[in-house]
Every structure is written in structure tokens, then in C-alpha cells.
Design a protein around this nucleic acid. Structure first.
Lengths: 236, 236
DNA sequence: ATTATCTATAGATCTATAGATAATGC
DNA sequence: ATTATCTATAGATCTATAGATAATGC
């Protein structure tokens, strides 16, 4: 005897598919279902973390049976990694290009602020113009970065971009100790992760004056703020 | 039939308690067990988050039966909140005092850097000198701040200190727009949370040059870095 | 007599797999 | 003939509670 939930769902499906009865190839259907699963998982993981989400939750949100999760993914961990990997190459690649472009423009004389604009603004723009899905990915990544599982993925996918940024910063600050540059980056990435997490706390603290999903406002301030911070680390 | 684990545990207990057969009052025993449970929970929650830890995990770490968790705490959520609350008043109170003291010393003319030293250094000192338990609490709080459950607790316990800091910053920057001060604080708290989380990523990135549990090194740079950032937000 | 701790167990939920069914693809 | 999806179910684990046992406290 089907539960009320399944009855409803089947009814809804019949409704939409009878309206147009779209013929999708198997490849199309596979791709579409995969995308729906990844989107649902991305959203849920971004809110509750790896352990706060069950495969059943994801299946329910997509409207398919739990066992389909195991058909497309080995297990929960591999679904989590698939969510991470899907957009990681895009954000990493875009920042790589932006940093390359900036390094070339600067022709051997980069500034800290210029490098940070390339690194930070490029990423923030991606989330600003990428719609809800990318905003969810931002929060997913920020949350993941805070965990053992996610930390390992961060290393694997983002070390190259970060080391490229560090390289340009060294060029911009040739008389700096290497540690100071790493600590400066440490402060930058902390603020960036906090931004991507969009916890809503600044909204409440500021009485609505600032909104944690206002990435435009953050973009207008962040690179300049952090560049000034870097310059303050100059040693006597 | 007792499992091997219980047999081992009982053996160990007999060993230690027969050695000295300490007579503890019920109040003492209660306090001691409570503390052990909170410490174990703090450690585990800091590593795996609310949903990544089971009451069984906590009980196992303490060496008592799972049902004792329910004797001392209503449920998992209330254990989580108890962990949060136990040290929240201490860190909040210390920073309150430090900010009050600084505001008085500055006699109406506070600086951004002075206020940030009072706010940040006071807290970092607490973790530096508080030993492993306080370091775990730092990571626990950082991780919690990133979640819906923890966010609400952050508001409840830390709004007063933060608003006091904001007040002093406004005094230090009288011609600043209020939003700029809040965004500056936003960057500061992001870096602070990232610090407290001690993910170890900076260790790997820097090839061991920086260590994420080197709060002393961070303290030496953070207030100055962030103060310079604030000053960069001055509007034309 | 009261309190700390344990035993036993119910009920819910979760992951994972085997096998059935219903579509698309040659 | 192959692939996408579902049904059914095993086995593990988790939370929570009722009731027993073993200590401390007057």
C-alpha cells in the first residue's frame, strides 16, 4: 500500500509528464537526475553538514527513492565529494586565470591590493552572478572547510590557486618574511570563508544594516581592507 | 554476559579505586562526572559537530553507560548547549572587562587598534593559557558559529561583548558610516573564528612554516592587521 | 532515603543490497 | 538489451525510557 507521500508524488509526476510527455534520452535523464541529486545534496549539506544530512533527506528532496542514491553514488561520502568537486574546478580555474592575467598586466610589479582583487573579486562575482545554486555551493564549501573531511578536499582542489596567490604576494612584498605573508593569507581566507557561510549573524547584530548575503557590499571593501592589513605587517 | 570492553573497564576501575579508595561525596562525584561528560562532549563536538557525535560516543569516551547521558542531560541538544554555555560566560566576561578597562584608559579617545587588542588578545590569551580544554572549546565554538543551532547561541551569549566593541569602534571612528564599522567587524570575526577552528590547513599550505595552533604568532599580528584594514575603509 | 550508575529493551532511523519493474535503445 | 527507478528487507546504530543495583547520607 503506497504511502500518502508517494501517492501525491506520483500524481504530481503524472500531471507534469502528461502535459508535455517529454521524451528524454537515457543520457539526458541520467544527467538531469544526477544534477537534481547534487543540487539537493549541496543545499542540504550547506545547511546541516555531512553528518546532519541523511541520504533519505536528499532522496526526499529530489522526489525519488533512497536506493537511487546508491545507484548513482557509492555512499554518502562519495556524494559529498561529488558535490565538492562539481564546482571546485570552475572557481579554481577562474581565479587561476584572473591571477595569471593580473600578474601579466602588472609586469613584474604587482601590488597586494591588485592581487587580492583578482583573487577575491573574481570569486565573489561568481557567486553574485551564479544564482542560488552557486550561493549554496559557497556555503557548502565554507562549512566543509571547517571539517576534517572537507579540509582534505580543500587541500586537494585549492592548493594550486592559493599558492599562485602567495607567489604574487611575495613578489609584491619582497622584503617580507614568508611567514608574515602566510599569516596575512590566513586572515584573508578566514574572512572569505566567513563571508561564504552567510550565517546571518551580522544582519541581526547590525539590526539589518548589513546583510550577510550582500556579497556586493563585501566585495567593495574586502580587498582594500586586507591589503591595508598586509602592509601593516611590515617589520621594523 | 559482559562484553570484553566492559570487563576491561571494570578491571581498570577496580585497580585505581582499590589503590586509594577515595571517598567522594555525592556532590563531588556528580560534579566530577558532569565535568568529564562535558569535556568529552566538547572534544568530540569540536571535531565532528553536533550531528557527527552520538551520545554513545561521548559515554564511551568517558567510560560510562550511555543512559547516564540522559540522567544528566535531557537530550543531545541540551548537552550541546551546556558545553557552549559552560565557558561562554568566562570568555565574554573577560572581554567585557578588558574593553571597559580600555575605554576608561583611553578617556574618550580610543583607537581602533587599542580596542581590537583588548577584544582579540584577551580572548587569545585565554586559550593560550587555558590548556587543551580551552583550545577544544575554541574549536567547538568556531565550528558551532557556522551552524544554525550554534548561531543562535552565539547571538544569545556574545551579542553584548560584540556590541560593546562596536560602540568603542564608533567612538574611535566618529566620521565613519555605521555599516563600514559593522563590515570591518565582520572581517575581524571571520578571521578570529578561522583561527579558533585550527584546521591545520595553513600548516600544510606553508609547509610547516606556520602552525594553526600557534595563537601567539596570530596574536602578535591580528589586531594590528585588522586595525589597518579598518582605517582603509575611510570614505573619500 | 537519596542519588549515581547500570541493565534491558522498545522504537525509530539509517545505510546498503538484492531483485523486480518499467522505460529507452538498437 | 540496457538502463533508470522502485520494492522489499537485512542489519546496524541511535535515542530514550523503565526499572534494577550499588553506593553515599542522615
Amino acid at each position: 500500500m503506497p504511502s500518502a507521500r508517494y501517492a501525491t508524488k506520483v500524481g504530481a509526476m503524472a500531471e507534469t509528464s502528461s502535459a508535455k510527455r517529454v521524451r528524454r534520452s537515457k543520457a539526458e535523464q541520467r544527467a538531469e537526475t544526477l544534477e537534481q541529486i547534487l543540487n539537493a545534496a549541496e543545499y542540504l549539506f550547506s545547511k546541516h553538514g555531512l553528518h546532519g544530512v541523511t541520504l533519505r533527506d536528499v532522496a526526499l528532496r529530489v522526489g525519488v527513492h533512497t536506493s537511487l542514491m546508491h545507484y548513482y553514488f557509492d555512499d554518502k561520502r562519495s556524494l559529498f565529494e561529488a558535490v565538492f568537486a562539481r564546482r571546485a574546478a570552475v572557481t579554481s580555474g577562474r581565479r587561476m586565470e584572473a591571477l595569471d592575467r593580473y600578474a601579466q598586466e602588472a609586469a613584474g610589479k604587482p601590488t597586494v591590493e591588485g592581487a587580492l582583487h583578482a583573487f577575491l573579486d573574481t570569486d565573489l562575482d561568481l557567486y553574485i552572478s551564479g544564482g542560488e545554486a552557486w550561493m549554496n555551493y559557497a556555503a557548502f564549501g565554507a562549512r566543509a572547510s571547517n571539517t576534517p573531511e572537507g579540509g582534505e578536499l580543500m587541500d586537494r582542489y585549492f592548493d594550486p590557486v592559493v599558492l599562485k596567490l602567495i607567489g604574487i604576494l611575495k613578489q609584491a612584498l619582497p622584503d617580507y618574511a614568508e611567514e608574515d605573508i602566510f599569516w596575512g593569507y590566513f586572515f584573508v581566507t578566514g574572512s572569505l570563508m566567513h563571508t561564504l557561510g552567510r550565517t546571518g549573524r551580522i544582519d541581526r547584530l547590525s539590526g539589518g544594516l548589513c546583510k550577510s548575503d550582500d556579497f556586493e557590499a563585501i566585495k567593495q571593501r574586502m580587498a582594500k581592507f586586507m591589503a591595508a592589513g598586509f602592509l601593516s605587517l611590515k617589520r621594523g
